[in-house]
């Protein structure tokens, strides 16, 4: 198994439609995903742990995950733990508003002032936890933290120097005449080969999505990246015996 460095934190919101606090979880998660920490966070719909496939159930093992619940039932935290992996951190809105002295939110469709304050407080707490989790070493094999490291080691930018310092395998590829360094590419290829994924059109999209977890891919260049990465993967596979 390979162990790719983690750059992102997973967010799972309960989204409870019957409670204003559920609306708070949804809007707060959205704020973190879109505004506060867009480059560091990903999300999954809670029901996909059951309604989705194996890849969806691997979510909380692959990413250290923050469960955000509206009430004490803690659907997001408990279901994530039951079907995927124990969340790395957890927030319960009803507890948080009490702690912050914010009134009880109301309004399912349109939150009142207290609800909006709760969204702000929840989003801030989430962003704080994201930063904290990015500063720890996460093992995808184990689905748990394996120690601590400097956050800068995890948040590697697309500079080869950083990768060298942390010992993260990189690969340089030529994309439209430009040399581009892709962090973790050899490990991604190794992972795909171990999973018996052949270099085909079916694998192309998945390869690109995995690469995008660790590398910025310019908007509009996705197709080109996908083709080049698939080509490189084919070369990688031809050079090595498939793992059985």
């Amino acid at each position: 198994m390979v162990d790719l460095p983690k750059k992102k934190v997973g967010i799972v919101a309960c989204s409870g439609e019957e409670l204003p606090e559920g609306t708070v979880t949804r809007l707060a998660a959205l704020k973190v995903l879109e505004q506060l920490r867009p480059a560091d966070t990903v999300t999954i719909c809670l029901p996909l742990f059951l309604a989705g496939g194996e890849g969806d159930r691997a979510f909380a093992k692959f990413y250290p995950t923050i469960a955000v619940d509206g009430c004490e039932l803690r659907c997001a935290a408990l279901a994530t733990e039951k079907y995927s992996n124990k969340p790395a951190a957890s927030i319960v809105v009803s507890d948080l508003v009490q702690e912050k002295g914010i009134g009880s939110p109301s309004g399912l469709r349109k939150l009142d002032q207290a609800g909006q304050e709760a969204v702000e407080a929840t989003a801030e707490r989430m962003a704080f936890l994201v930063d904290e989790l990015l500063g720890k070493r996460w093992s995808r094999q184990e689905g748990e933290f394996t120690g601590t490291e400097d956050a800068t080691e995890v948040q590697i930018e697309n500079e080869a120097a950083c990768a060298c310092v942390t010992g993260i395998p990189i690969q340089k590829v030529s994309i439209e005449g430009q040399e581009v360094t892709l962090i973790g590419l050899p490990l991604i290829f190794q992972q795909f080969q171990e999973d018996s994924k052949s270099p085909s059109d079916a694998t192309k999209k998945e390869l690109l999505e995995t690469v995008k977890i660790y590398n910025p891919v310019p908007i509009g260049a996705e197709d080109t990246y996908a083709e080049i990465i698939l080509h490189e993967y084919a070369i990688f596979c031809n050079g090595k015996e498939p793992v059985t």
Partner: peptide
């Protein structure tokens, strides 16, 4: 009446 999906996921 509305039933929240998260409750069904949890098996409420």
């Amino acid at each position: 009446h509305l039933v929240a999906l998260s409750l069904l996921v949890l098996g409420d």
